[in-house]
């Protein structure tokens, strides 16, 4: 009798979870970030990326895979999303590595500056809600979100249920492929028009927030364990937009000096574009979209430099003439940068 009841309860729970799992994706808000992560994580596993780009909005609008392709024949995908906290980036990277073996991993370190224990829920959800059920997803939820929010991340319908009056056909039949040609990149087309007022010549170091340090070390350990090449970057930005603000470190420039030292000690390249602006001809007024993000022209300059660095330091095959990658050429033609130069 007891066995029968237990069986019944188990079957009931399984059916219920299955129904809820079918409903979850309908209710999750459909953002460009969701679309690109689904494509990059699950739908384009055939594209073996030479390089994968990880980080927050700085990286999202900073390195353009279409430029890397067009100029150097490097295949890459930009997994960065707005406000992506560094701990979330770590679990996302682990999920990416399940399908893409041994790429060069470029991680933007800007979000190491965050002192809050957890990032903003909306930003975290861009990533976690786009991940399929997996150990990585569970770990991301357990480590990157408050414990009491667990059910809301496991069953996103509990979070998004009040979207029901605004559901459209797109929610039921979501096409995540519509922007795959951009390979996860999107930059603004503003021109900031102001100079950088933060001190770029700051010397000395400042401690990393404990969680940032923990995850920086986790990236390094993971690269050693999995045997992939790791590169850290920092995009040009005016630190004054965050320095000393609630939830951010007091002195980002000094903290990044500390990151540079840790990277050096571990033999990991750290490219700080904040201090390389003159070298790459980066004009803060013209090449920034706002105080924190490069624009499409700035991204072009930064990407070209990164491409050069990759080409010179790593053994990367130029795929441009490989017929297997013909689609990458037409994708480039649709890209932001190509349409601007038309």
């Amino acid at each position: 009798m007891t066995k029968k009841i237990v069986q019944k309860v188990v079957i009931f729970i399984i059916i219920l979870i299955s129904i809820v799992s079918l409903l979850n994706p309908i209710f999750i808000v459909k953002t460009d970030h969701r679309g690109k992560l689904i494509e990059g994580l699950y739908n384009h596993t055939g594209d073996a990326y030479d390089v994968i780009l990880m980080g927050s909005s700085h990286m999202n609008g900073g390195i353009d895979p279409n430029v890397l392709w067009h100029q150097y024949g490097i295949t890459s995908f930009n997994y960065a999303t707005a406000g992506q906290p560094i701990d979330v980036t770590y679990y996302l990277l682990k999920e990416v590595l399940k399908k893409h073996k041994n790429p060069i991993v470029v991680v933007d370190v800007y979000y190491l500056c965050l002192t809050n224990k957890y990032g903003e829920e909306g930003y975290i959800r861009y990533v976690i809600d786009s991940m399929k059920p997996s150990i990585n997803k569970l770990n991301a939820i357990m480590n990157c979100t408050p414990f009491m929010d667990l059910p809301y991340y496991l069953f996103p319908i509990l979070k998004y249920h009040n979207r029901w009056p605004e559901l459209t056909k797109n929610d039921f039949r979501y096409d995540s492929a519509y922007k795959y040609y951009a390979k996860g990149f999107e930059a603004g087309t503003n021109k900031y028009g102001k100079d950088n007022i933060s001190d770029l010549t700051a010397t000395g170091t400042a401690e990393l927030p404990p969680k940032s340090l923990e995850y920086l070390n986790k990236f390094i350990e993971l690269s050693k364990k999995e045997g992939f090449k790791l590169i850290f970057t920092n995009m040009p930005n005016d630190f004054n937009s965050i320095a000393g603000k609630d939830g951010w470190v007091k002195d980002p420039a000094k903290m990044l000096n500390q990151v540079a030292e840790i990277a050096k000690a571990n033999n990991i390249p750290f490219i700080d574009y904040g201090s390389k602006m003159d070298e790459i001809g980066f004009n803060f007024k013209e090449d920034m979209n706002n105080s924190g993000h490069v624009n499409i022209w700035g991204a072009n300059k930064v990407t070209n430099d990164l491409g050069k660095f990759l080409k010179e330091n790593y053994n990367l095959v130029d795929h441009r003439n490989d017929p297997k990658y013909a689609q990458w050429n037409s994708d480039y033609m649709r890209s932001q940068i190509a349409s601007l130069s038309k």
């Binding site: 219920l16 809820v20 409903l23 808000v29 998004y160 249920h161 979209n289």
Partner: peptide, 24 residues
């Protein structure tokens, strides 16, 4: 259960402003 899950008033709910990204 599904009806209550969808049409119930509970939780923090989804607010568009949480998901709007102002940078670009």
């Amino acid at each position: 259960i599904v009806f209550i899950m969808i049409f119930g008033i509970y939780g923090h709910g989804y607010e568009a402003k949480q998901f709007i990204y102002f940078q670009f």
